[in-house]
Every structure is written in structure tokens, then in C-alpha cells.
Design a protein around this nucleic acid. Structure first.
Lengths: 162, 162
DNA sequence: ATTGAAATAGCGTCAAT
DNA sequence: ATTGACGCTATTTCAAT
């Protein structure tokens, strides 16, 4: 179980840096420094610290799944029986490592997990759900919804004005 | 309604570039070129083309919502009545622009949309659901699940070996 | 923690293929 | 489309504050 990071609040400069990197993760250090009004060397230190503190968890390309041979996207709602802690933890740790999993959310309510998937075909989707979700200790039910369209939020979540 | 991009299949080099940028979006052009075994100038051209073709949609920092003042995350399942095309399209276009929205998925089945949110408080979450989801033309019902934990898939979706 | 300066390294244009 | 070379800019280290 990963311990929850303790965060002291970000100062104004850190917020500017995080917001900028959320919009464009490939901004050069020079551009970042100019945007924040600090020296380039300071900027380097700050950005490294933001990553080490876990405030910036990573910087990743957002890839069109269809373009890379995974045209079938789905959101699967998984329900557990019993809620044994060990089962929940194994699920949380293991499912993200299965190829095709984009994200996994452990949630409150009737559903226990939402699993976001990208598959090569409907055939592969069915196999995925049966092999990696339904057929797993503690899982009672999995309800699969095909994804027609996905959109990213347009606002950086760091923006204090929003 | 955005037209679906037509993709000719990626060659081996493009797949290497996309996979590398999915793992680390801040890799330098030099490192990318070395990884793919091509000239740096070619690499620049390729990466630019991948972005222009929409295969790489963007490169963004993944930010810990709690660290930037949004400790309450939720997944909201939204159900529509009637399914008027105009209502669905307005929802798809407008909801992602509301501050706090991380992503929106239009899906098949009993639920029509999943909305992933990050809010400053439970109070704000309630207001968000009432003001921006329930209170919207066509929406019948919104079922909110608190998110306890989120994980990214560990495999790049581009990887052909997965 | 932040800085400016200096050395190293990377970026991006271009003419040639 | 890909390339190597070249001129320019950016990155990163470091001693000083």
C-alpha cells in the first residue's frame, strides 16, 4: 500500500510551472523559466523537486489508441463480493500491469472499480474481461461499456482561477 | 463533430518513438533519435508528423490532484433520457470545459457518460454535479462515486509485444 | 534556495541525396 | 523522406550568495 504523500502547499512559482507542464509537457526549461520569471538553473531545480515530491507524477504522450492498433476502448465496472482487503489490494496492484489497461479507479458505491481499457478487437475485449477481471478472486461481476468517444478536460487542474 | 482520423499503420520506427514518448514525454530529441536508430533531423520530422497526424494527441504532465488543492476525486455516471443528438453533442462539447473535469467518456449501455472530476471539497463536488451535470438538458440521472485510488496502466498501449 | 556564468550538449535549418 | 554538417540555442554544473 503506497503511503499518501504529505504536501505542503505550492507557492505561486510552482503552480505556474505545474500548470505550464500540464498544458505542454515538452516546454523547454528556458521557456518555463521565462514563464515563471526565475533563473533557468532555479527552474531546473524546481521542476526536479516537483517530480521527486510526487506533485508531477510523470509526463506522458497521450496516444490515440486506434492509431496504434487498439480501436476498441471500454470502461468496465467491476463489483466485488465480500470485499476482502487482500483481494482488493491484489486487484489494485495487478490489473494495471495487464497490457491494454489505461487506468484503474477504486471507487465507493455499488461498483468497486472502473477499468479503462484499449483492445485490438471485440474478441480481445471479451477475453480480457473474462481472463483478467471476472476470473479473479473476489470479483462478482463485470459490466462492460464500449467507449464511443473520450475527451480530456480543457482546464489544467492546477489553475487556481478555475 | 470531429471527423475520425484515418490512420495508415505505423512503421516500426514510429512505434518506437510513440512508445518512448508515452513512457517519458520529456525525452530529448537526441535520445529519441538514438533509441530509434535514426538521424536527429529525421527524428524531429517524425515526431512533428506524429503530432500533426493526431497519433500523439499531446504531451502532458500527470499532476497529483490532491497536491494542487483538489483532494476530492469522483467518477460520475450520467444517464440521459430521450438521447436527442443535440443534447448529447452539447454535453460532449461543454462538460470538458468546466474546471475540475479531468476526462469525459461517452459510452454504450445504461450509462451514457462517465465524468472524471477533481474537486476542492465534497461541498464543491455536490455543487458541480448539481450545476453542471444533473441540471443540463437531457440529463436524467447522475450517480457519483468517490475515487479512493487511481492507477495508470503500466504498459504503453503502443507496445506491440503486449 | 537562488543566481549568473561557463562548458557541454542539444536543436533545428539546409543543401544534397 | 532521410541525411550530416553547421550555426545557434538550451541545458546543466558550479562557486558564490
Amino acid at each position: 500500500m503506497p503511503s499518501r504523500p504529505e504536501h505542503r502547499p505550492l507557492d505561486e512559482i510552482d503552480r505556474i510551472l505545474v500548470t505550464a507542464l500540464e498544458k505542454d509537457g515538452r516546454l523547454s526549461n528556458t521557456q518555463l523559466a521565462r514563464t515563471a520569471g526565475i533563473a533557468e538553473s532555479t527552474c531546473l531545480t524546481r521542476v526536479k523537486a516537483l517530480r521527486e515530491r510526487g506533485i508531477v507524477r510523470g509526463i506522458h504522450a497521450a496516444v490515440d489508441p486506434a492509431a496504434v492498433g487498439r480501436p476498441v476502448e471500454a470502461m468496465v465496472a467491476v463489483r466485488f463480493g465480500g470485499h476482502a482487503r487482500a483481494h482488493i489490494e491484489r486487484f489494485t496492484d495487478e490489473v494495471p500491469q495487464v497490457p491494454g489497461v489505461i487506468s484503474l479507479h477504486h471507487v465507493s458505491g455499488a461498483t468497486d472499480f472502473y477499468v479503462h481499457l484499449a483492445c485490438r478487437s471485440a474478441h480481445e475485449l471479451r477475453d480480457f474481461v473474462l481472463d483478467h477481471l471476472t476470473n479473479r478472486p473476489g470479483v462478482l461481476h463485470a459490466e462492460t461499456s464500449l467507449i464511443f468517444d473520450s475527451r480530456r478536460g480543457t482546464h489544467p487542474i492546477t489553475d487556481p482561477m478555475s
